[in-house]
Write a protein that binds this DNA or RNA. Structure first.
Length: 329
DNA sequence: AAAATCAGCAACCGCAGTGAA
DNA sequence: TTTCACTGCGGTTGCTGATTT
């Protein structure tokens, strides 16, 4: 026995909403509210529409403070970062972007952001060496090669106009920082807990085992970092290289507890906090990921340069898949 | 200038979760 | 405990205007 339809489809209007319908619905809801029952709302308003249709129209178009138009670089950033973390859970992503609806963000991702990444990937593939193992290339040489490439191919830099950010890592304790410093990495301290690395330094680090014992820090700006609790579940590490952005954001379960409880949070921290709460309080779907473009499909598009992450990404990707329910435990 | 194709987006569909009876 | 109406969400469809051929 199938479920009863929510409305009599033969007697409801479908398709685009007219201005008259819009104004009727808007006026009614502004005056009376939804009454918590969308199914009976159309009758009260005097519309021959399905309740679900009214709800959608209100949420996506009529309700106050809806923001239409171009997405900003910061919004792009947040969408990509969160997509990397939680996948296509548009309502959660929308909750981080005031005025944007899940439908808007979903459309924007499917029609523009995804293509933006694909375009970038194509350009990167075109530049890859044709022979030999990419992974086995000398890391420093590859890094220099990429830097030269982006220095001379301004068009690619223009393709990605997102704000530049700096990669941040933090040692788990000061001893590590000091010992690392003693290893001639010449770290710059932004605070007692954080260290900034140059790309060359990262190459050196990734060629050693030091990365595994470090904490990845959220680097939306140099001054707004979230300390991650351990080296296994970094969250929201974003790397910029000459205009290209590295989204290395993994599951929020690794957020540092102290950071989460900190009262002096930055915007990016607040985003992580609330997303963590939302993700933890909702069920993770194992099916929706299959139907949309998976991050596994797109992640190669933003993993640049490979030399920085090849050491650690397989494990992190595994962890991400496991927590997203993509792998059996 | 007309036809074909593409891109963007509003709206729809159906499934899963929730809570009241 | 079970049933079922309702809500919310994510994937998909189809319309429309823009662009290309």
């Amino acid at each position: 026995m199938g479920r009863a339809p929510c409305c009599d489809k033969a007697n409801v209007k479908r398709g685009p909403w007219s201005p008259e319908e819009d104004s009727k619905l808007k006026a009614y809801i502004e005056q009376h509210g939804t009454g918590g029952n969308w199914i009976t709302l159309p009758q009260k308003v005097g519309l021959k529409r399905c309740g679900k249709s009214c709800r959608l129209r209100w949420l996506n178009y009529l309700r106050p403070n809806i923001k239409h138009g171009e997405f900003t670089d910061e919004e792009d950033n947040i969408i990509c970062t969160l997509y990397k973390s939680i996948g296509s859970r548009w309502s959660i992503i929308a909750a981080q972007l005031p005025g944007r609806t899940d439908n808007d963000i979903k459309n924007y991702w499917n029609t523009r952001l995804k293509k933006k990444l694909l375009l970038c990937n194509k350009q990167r593939k075109d530049h890859r060496p044709r022979t030999g193992s990419y992974i086995n290339h000398n890391k420093l040489e590859m890094m220099k090669e990429h830097e030269n490439f982006f220095a001379t191919h301004q068009t690619i830099n223009n393709t990605y106009s997102w704000p530049s950010q700096q990669i941040l890592f933090a040692p788990q304790n000061h001893d590590l920082a000091e010992s690392s410093s003693a290893n001639s990495h010449n770290f710059q301290y932004s605070s007692t807990d954080q260290v900034y690395f140059s790309q060359d330094q990262l190459c050196q680090i990734s060629s050693t085992n030091q990365l595994a014992s470090m904490n990845l820090v959220n680097g939306n700006t140099c001054n707004s970092s979230v300390m991650i609790s351990n080296g296994y579940y970094p969250s929201n590490g974003v790397v910029i290289n000459n205009g290209l952005q590295e989204y290395n954001n993994y599951n929020s379960v690794g957020l540092d507890h102290d950071a989460l409880n900190s009262t002096s949070t930055t915007h990016s921290q607040q985003v992580d906090k609330s997303v963590l709460e939302m993700v933890n309080s909702s069920t993770i779907s194992t099916t929706s990921q299959d139907q949309s473009t998976s991050w596994e499909e797109l992640s190669p598009l933003v993993n640049y340069p490979p030399s920085v992450f090849e050491t650690v990404s397989p494990y992190y990707v595994f962890e991400e898949q496991r927590y997203m329910g993509l792998l059996k435990q």
